[in-house]
């Protein structure tokens, strides 16, 4: 069994669906699927689930869209399967009034498998639980995402700015920011 299949099996309890088409997720199109899913947030948001993608074209093997509350259980499963947290970042979808948090997981040695986990938050109140209790690497990455986007990570031990001056009062990577 490949790592991706093993991971899919481990994620089964959280996402009760089977893998579907290998079409990429496009900005405004909902994910095409023919089995049960959990509800999505708006009509334009990609629906929650696990998608297999073409790693040669996109760079990652699995694309997981989850709800904000599922972020920590998914991170726990990744930790148990031996992945490491490569990066956490945010994306500002101004038109949909959503902020997206993207987690990249990779494996250190052995079979290569990169997994992208995404979750969508409302732009006016972006709150998501922290994964720094599972992966200490998340500590600085979440601080950086907070610094750039203003996303609040609940439970973070030290959520202060990391790259901008501590007394800055703006979040520069938001699309409607002008200096």
């Amino acid at each position: 069994m490949t790592i991706c299949e093993k991971l899919q099996q481990a994620l089964q309890p959280l996402f009760p669906l089977c893998d579907v088409s290998s079409e990429p997720l496009v900005k405004d199109e909902p994910q095409v699927a023919d089995s049960e899913k959990e509800e999505s947030q708006t009509a334009d948001t990609p629906t929650v689930g696990v998608l297999w993608t073409d790693a040669g074209r996109y760079g990652h093997h699995l694309d997981i869209v989850c709800l904000p509350d599922q972020v920590v259980p998914v991170a726990g499963i990744m930790d148990r399967e031996g992945f490491f947290l490569e990066a956490i970042t945010g994306v500002d979808w101004l038109k949909r009034q959503q902020l997206e948090v993207v987690y990249d997981y990779n494996r250190l040695g052995g079979e290569h498998c990169r997994v992208m986990v995404r979750t969508f938050l409302p732009r006016n109140n972006p709150v998501v639980p922290t994964v720094s209790s599972v992966f200490p690497a998340a500590d600085w990455h979440e601080r950086e995402t907070y610094d750039f986007y203003g996303i609040q990570f609940q439970g973070h031990p030290n959520l202060i700015r990391i790259l901008l001056p501590e007394d800055a009062d703006f979040h520069p990577l938001l699309k409607d920011y002008t200096p």
Binding site: P24, V26, Y58, E86, A87, T89, V102, N106, M116
Partner: peptide, 20 residues
């Protein structure tokens, strides 16, 4: 380019450099 999420990884002298 087509809309989507892309990732590339290269090995620099210091480690894995990723572009998301």
């Amino acid at each position: 380019p087509d809309a989507g999420y892309y990732y590339s990884a290269v090995e620099t002298a210091r480690g894995l450099l990723g572009h998301r």
